[in-house]
Design a protein around this nucleic acid. Structure first.
Lengths: 144, 144
DNA sequence: TTTGATGCAAAGGATTTGCAAATTT
DNA sequence: AAATTTGCAAATCCTTTGCATCAAA
């Protein structure tokens, strides 16, 4: 029995697509994957699966809190393992690189602000958009 | 000559659709409007315009920094006048209401974090998701 | 076996694009 | 007149659904 507890706990059946998708997120060094990304990677590994299934599983994983669904401005949705610590994102608008960060001061202010307004906080999303050091170094005048 | 400076400065021709769309954002008491919203409002005012034009103009306005394009998690894109102060958003996941807020402490931390990582900050988006006071009051047990 | 899951193809919703006609400068 | 812009319809992109078949419990 090697069914990962995440799956077991979710009440979802341990099917091949689900096992492989979970495995993919756990092993991939790329943290954020879109449905299409997952699809390509599985196909590349000779795993016969349909895109629709990917979308369904990703959605179920998000509901089961196994994954987080993120949608950066104007981009397609991406998913990432939720097992990791909560964090925010810094997205390079030039090369697309995504760095993660966490700032306790900001976290605290958010809770405070929500509380002050009688808001029951469920989730939040903070993304900084800009040019990473590599990109500004490579093309300092390309900034349009 | 009553061509708004925003338009004049943008280099875009002062066409009826553009004038009306700008006017709409400046007069509407609703801050966030989707392309579809704008379309309906203009049609309602007997202004014959196509949806495609709305999308094009909204995009051009965003590029010209007249409007900001926002995309809250899983929702369609909405636009808002950028003339107003910068602010973040608090979205009620139950009724959809959007409140705005600004917190200097958070703003400062963001700049600091970006600077520490050699990131040239261009924009950022912070959205808190939760249940507003009205919704938690009305249906305290409906939280699924 | 019973229930849930999958793949495929079709359907959807939001947004974009090609193009000829209409408008602005 | 020259350069844009528009409306329409068709095209795209991403995501969701219907359904008959297949697999897990």
């Amino acid at each position: 029995m090697e069914i990962p507890k995440e799956l077991r706990d979710s009440g979802l059946k341990a099917t091949l697509p689900r096992l492989k998708i979970l495995e993919l997120f756990q092993q991939s060094d790329v943290r954020h994957l879109s449905a299409e990304d997952v699809y390509r990677l599985l196909i590349r590994d000779n795993i016969d699966v349909g895109l629709a299934t990917i979308y369904r599983v990703l959605m179920q994983f998000a509901e089961a809190r196994i994954l987080w669904r993120r949608q950066f401005e104007g981009e397609r949705a991406v998913f990432e393992l939720s097992a990791s610590e909560h964090h925010d994102h810094m997205v390079c608008v030039d090369c697309g690189k995504v760095e993660e960060f966490i700032d306790e001061a900001i976290e605290r202010r958010q809770s405070l602000i929500a509380k002050q307004r009688g808001f029951m906080l469920r989730d939040h999303s903070l993304s900084l958009y800009g040019s990473c050091s590599s990109c500004t170094a490579l093309a300092p005048n390309t900034l349009k």
